[in-house]
């Protein structure tokens, strides 16, 4: 006997099967998922909410996720997403693509002037970015969007922001005191052990080439093609990026700069637009770009200086000014 499909079977069967399937997977979760805020959840201010509306209108959610997954250790998964982080969010903005970075913990990672430069021209601070320019939004909406960015991460974002603001006055004061005073101030913020530290990587041609590549992808937007701090982003940043050429007369103990450069590339200059790069650049890349900056912009390369210690098996002695310092040790 053939099972007959009559209009009644089709319509009532269709209705029944839909509701039987729909109820357990959509209706039930709606009532059983607790609606409690997480320990970092924070209510949004009016401005932050306005920024969220701009974020929605511009479709930011199609390229930026807002949750850290268990496998995201590489982007610095300090905190995995919890349901309570999204308390009262309507609509949710979890996102389905990560063409750009995750933003769930963006608050306080960058300063407001960095965000301004980034929204006006993303490539001015992130040369490899493919994000659209948002200059058309105008000052007010960019301000709101920035406030929203700085709120992402809740209570932890607020703490990061508070820390940025705490240091910011000092950073600005140092910049306004003059170039030499500024560098002295920056030197003093570096832990003493890092200051008399030469770059342990020889500034070979290979190292300098790698450094150039890193500089072009990470630094050139603000510090500029000649390292004078007049990159594309400079018109939006305050204080502007450091002019490297002024370091030449302010070397630590008149000779060291490698360790200080490394420290600032790793950690950023908190309170200024200079971000930290320790999640994005491995140790060797930071030393290489330090060599590049030292060699071409400061015109002072400390990578052959004492203390040298025992070199890694990677460095072989050679001829020329950039050859590894091990050369002298071996020739003795």
């Amino acid at each position: 006997m053939r099972a007959r499909m009559t209009p009644a079977v089709l319509i009532f069967g269709g209705l029944i099967i839909f509701w039987v399937a729909f109820t357990p997977v959509v209706i039930v979760p709606t009532y059983v998922i607790p609606d409690d805020p997480s320990e970092t959840w924070d209510a949004r201010t009016e401005l932050e909410q306005r920024g969220r509306e701009v974020y929605i209108a511009e479709g930011c959610t199609y390229c930026h996720s807002q949750y850290i997954r268990p496998q995201d250790w590489g982007i610095g998964a300090d905190r995995l997403a919890k349901a309570g982080d999204y308390h009262q969010d309507a609509p949710h903005l979890l996102g389905s693509q990560r063409t750009g970075p995750d933003l769930s913990q963006e608050g306080g990672q960058h300063t407001n002037d960095w965000h301004l430069a980034h929204f006006m021209n993303p490539r001015s601070v992130r040369p490899d970015s493919i994000m659209p320019r948002f200059e058309y939004l105008g000052e007010e909406d960019i301000g709101a969007l920035t406030a929203y960015m700085q709120s992402l991460g809740g209570v932890e974002a607020d703490l990061r922001m508070a820390y940025q603001y705490k240091v910011r006055d000092d950073v600005i004061a140092a910049y306004e005191a003059g170039p030499d005073e500024n560098i002295q101030y920056l030197h003093e913020q570096v832990p003493p052990g890092w200051r008399p530290l030469p770059n342990p990587y020889p500034a070979t041609d290979a190292s300098l080439s790698r450094g150039e590549k890193v500089y072009q992808s990470f630094c050139i937007g603000c510090h500029g093609p000649v390292g004078d701090g007049m990159g594309q982003a400079s018109e939006w940043l305050y204080p502007p990026a450091l002019n490297f050429t002024t370091i030449r007369r302010n070397l630590w103990e008149d000779k060291y700069i490698g360790g200080i450069l490394y420290y600032y590339i790793m950690n950023g200059v908190t309170g200024s637009a200079m971000p930290y790069f320790k999640h994005e650049l491995e140790s060797e890349k930071i030393w290489d770009v330090s060599n590049y900056v030292a060699k071409y912009f400061i015109d002072w390369d400390d990578s052959n200086m004492e203390p040298v210690g025992v070199h890694s098996a990677r460095e072989t002695p050679g001829e020329g000014e950039n050859s590894p310092p091990a050369r002298e040790v071996i020739s003795e």
């Binding site: 997977v25 998922i33 609606d35 999204y86 969010d89 309507a90 949710h92």
Partner: peptide, 19 residues
């Protein structure tokens, strides 16, 4: 039935949306 946002709230909204 939520004309303004067209959404539920929180992760529940994500479940409704992906349904």
């Amino acid at each position: 039935w939520h004309p303004k946002t067209g959404s539920m709230t929180g992760t529940v909204d994500a479940i409704w949306l992906w349904f």
